[in-house]
C-alpha cells in the first residue's frame, strides 16, 4: 500500500468517524449521569432530517447545526420526561424512542429525498493547509470536524476537571449519596440527557449535511447503535471513544479499498469487519476489570426514586 493511499485513508477515517464522535460523546455524558438512553439512533435520524431541511431552505450551516441539536434535544426531552419524571423503564423507553425517531424522520423528510446539497467546504488555512502530509492530515477538514474535536476537549475537561462534572460522575455512581448531600439528582440527569440528545442530533446533521449531503430514509444506518457500543467498549472514557470512532472509520474506508483491489473475499464479510475489529480492539485494551468497575457508572439504567 503506498503512502499517499495510507494518508488518504486516515483523512477519510476522520471524516467517517466524526458522527460517532458527536453521538458517542453525548451518550457518554448521559450515561455518566446514570441514564441509559438507547434512543441514539432515533435522535440522530431526527437531527439529520431537521438539519437537512434547514440547510436546504436557508443554506446556513449554523442554522442547520443549531436546528439539528434542538431536534435531537427535543427527542431526548421526551425520553427524559418519560424516564426521569414519570420513572418509566429506561431500556424500553430508549427502544421506543428509536422506533419513533425512524418513523418521524421518514415522515419529515418525505419531500426532501431527491434533493442534493452542495456540502460543507473544507477550511483552507493559508500556509498550514498547504504543508505536505501534515496539511492534509490536520488541516483539511470542514468546520464540523473541528467542532467535534473541541467537543472532545470540552467533555474531557468538564468530566475530570470541573466541579459540575465531578457532581455528574457522583450522581451516576450513587444518586442516593448525591441526594443525601442535597443535590438535585433528577435535574442533573435532565441536563445530561438533553446534552446527549443535542450531540446525537448534531452527529446526524453532520451526516446529512456534510458527510453525504443528501437525505435518504434511514441514512444513519446503525451508527447510533455503534455509538452506544463504543461508549460501553471504551469503558466510558472520552479518549477511548475517540480512538474507537476513528478506528471504525478507518476500517470502513480501508475495506472499500480492499474491495477495489479485487481481493477474493465476499464484500459482505468485509463490511462486517469495522464492527468486529473495533469491538475486539476496544475489548482488548479495556479488559482490566478494575478499570471497568472504576469507570462504569454504577447506577446506569436504574430508575432513581428519591425517598421523602
Amino acid at each position: 500500500m503506498d503512502f499517499d493511499l495510507f494518508i488518504h485513508i486516515l483523512v477519510a477515517a476522520v471524516a467517517a468517524g466524526t458522527p460517532f464522535v458527536f453521538a458517542a460523546l453525548g451518550e457518554l455524558v448521559t450515561e455518566k449521569s446514570g441514564v441509559l438512553n438507547l434512543g441514539v439512533e432515533g435522535m440522530m435520524l431526527v437531527g439529520a432530517v431537521s438539519g437537512f431541511i434547514v440547510m436546504a431552505k436557508t443554506g446556513s450551516l449554523l442554522a442547520a447545526a443549531l436546528c439539528g441539536m434542538v431536534a435531537g434535544g427535543l427527542m431526548a426531552g421526551i425520553f427524559a420526561v418519560l424516564t426521569l419524571t414519570l420513572m418509566a423503564n429506561q431500556v424500553a423507553s430508549g427502544l421506543a424512542l428509536t422506533i419513533f425517531g425512524v418513523g418521524l424522520s421518514a415522515f419529515m423528510g418525505l419531500e426532501y429525498t431527491s434533493i442534493g446539497l452542495p456540502g460543507v467546504p473544507e477550511i483552507h488555512l493559508p500556509f498550514l493547509s498547504d504543508l505536505p502530509v501534515v496539511g492534509q492530515l490536520f488541516f483539511s477538514y470542514n468546520i464540523l470536524v473541528y467542532c467535534s474535536l473541541v467537543l472532545f476537549g470540552g467533555v474531557s475537561w468538564f468530566l475530570y476537571k470541573s466541579k459540575t462534572g465531578l457532581l455528574l460522575r457522583g450522581v451516576g455512581e450513587s444518586p442516593k449519596s448525591a441526594h443525601a448531600l442535597g443535590y438535585n439528582v433528577i435535574g442533573i440527569r435532565y441536563l445530561a440527557v438533553l446534552f446527549g440528545g443535542a450531540m446525537a442530533g448534531l452527529g446526524g446533521t453532520y451526516l446529512s449535511v456534510a458527510y453525504t449531503p443528501m437525505w435518504v430514509e434511514g441514512m444513519v444506518a446503525g451508527r447510533g447503535w455503534v455509538s452506544l457500543a463504543l461508549v460501553v467498549f471504551a469503558t466510558w472514557r472520552p479518549a477511548r471513544v475517540m480512538l474507537g470512532a476513528y478506528l471504525f472509520g478507518a476500517i470502513t474506508i480501508a475495506q472499500f479499498h480492499v474491495q477495489g483491489f479485487g481481493v477474493e473475499i465476499p464484500a459482505q464479510l468485509l463490511s462486517m469487519l469495522p464492527y468486529l475489529a473495533t469491538i475486539v480492539v476496544l475489548v482488548f485494551i479495556s479488559r482490566d476489570q478494575n478499570i471497568i468497575r472504576l469507570n462504569s457508572p454504577a447506577s446506569l439504567g436504574i430508575t432513581y426514586h428519591p425517598d421523602m
Partner: peptide, 8 residues
Amino acid sequence: HFSLFETL
C-alpha cells in the same frame, strides 16, 4: 449507611 462515592 454511608453517603460516599466509591470511585471518587
